[in-house]
Amino acid sequence: MPIVFPDIWHLRLIVAPEAVDAFEEVFDRFAESVTMFMEDKSGISDGDCLWHLEGYSRTPPDRAQITAALAAVAAATGHDLPALEVERLPNVDWVLENLRDFPPIDAGRFFVRGSHWDGKVPVGRTELLVDAGTAFGSGEHATTRGCLTMLDMLAKRRRFLHPLDLGSGSGILGIGMAKMWAVDVLATDIDPSAVKVCANNARMNGVGARFTSVVSDGYRNPALKKGKPFDIIVANILAKPLMRMAKDLAAHLAPDGVAVLSGLLDWQERMVMGAHEPQGLRLRQRLVIDGWATLLIGR
């Protein structure tokens, strides 16, 4: 009997940079997952570009309702009404399709590879072996590479003893910290399937005994309150959730601790820092890869 995978609907808009935030709010209401990427026609990130705003849903979207919401936003903001594309994705194993196109990735001292790859790991690199499963975070994304590179930079200055990987996905960042500093790591994700994948990946990398992976909506799981303060918090999520959780981050961060934030576009950096600076957190370092920013912040 053939394996049947869940139906997934794909929503897409193409909008100008100044309209991204307005229409993203509509997708946030109708899609379970929202992402975006830039189509840069000029070769510079602030030049002639368009943004592809994409959403994914496991329930059939109501095109008329979404279009009406988009029209209301367009009328209120003065932006042009973008054309909405809706398609039902083919019933295939997207994880397998992703793994076929998942090459090894170099990020600082880290070498991320899928279990399907049987090449030789370069000498002196810390290997991160990953089966992405149903969780986001193969390491190929610029934000994950940015976080790993930032962790590598931090390791040259200091050893951290009590890390938190918030929004862990497949667990790459938490596993990297567990391997690099030989410490216990708490990893959380809002998606139970991601938590299972994360725990499996930790075991596959030989750090399962010092790795705790739990379901948590932000900082709500009691394990975070019990475990705080953390001397390093890594949160590779999206700009708006990072902003909403700025106060919680400050409350869970040790006085001399630092946080690595990513999942935000370079032009969203000012908004994200605007939420964290009132909490006494300042920008210490930034790294931009393909238009995506990774920020190091601390008191």
Rank of each mutant, 00 (worst) to 15 (best):
Q65F: 00
G124L: 14
D62H: 08
V26K: 04
D46Q: 13
P60S: 08
V258W: 03
A142N: 10
P82E: 09
L283D: 12
D28A: 11
P6Q: 10
H162V: 05
G257Q: 05
D131G: 08
F230V: 01
R158A: 09
E39T: 07
R286Q: 13
P61H: 03
G108V: 05
D93N: 15
S115I: 11
V92F: 15
D290I: 04
P222F: 06
M204V: 11
L96M: 09
T294P: 09
G114A: 12
A209S: 15
R282M: 14
I8L: 10
G146P: 04
D191L: 09
D248P: 05
A194L: 09
K41W: 10
T212G: 06
R159M: 15
I66V: 15
L287P: 02
T126N: 05
M243Y: 11
G124V: 12
R299D: 06
I232Q: 03
P229K: 03
K228H: 12
L13E: 05
L96W: 08
I44P: 03
S168M: 08
R282T: 14
A251P: 08
W292V: 05
L99W: 13
D62A: 09
T134D: 12
A239N: 02
D46I: 07
S193W: 04
V92N: 13
D101V: 15
A132M: 13
P60L: 05
S170E: 02
V207G: 02
W117L: 11
D93K: 07
T212N: 14
R29V: 07
R158F: 05
D189V: 08
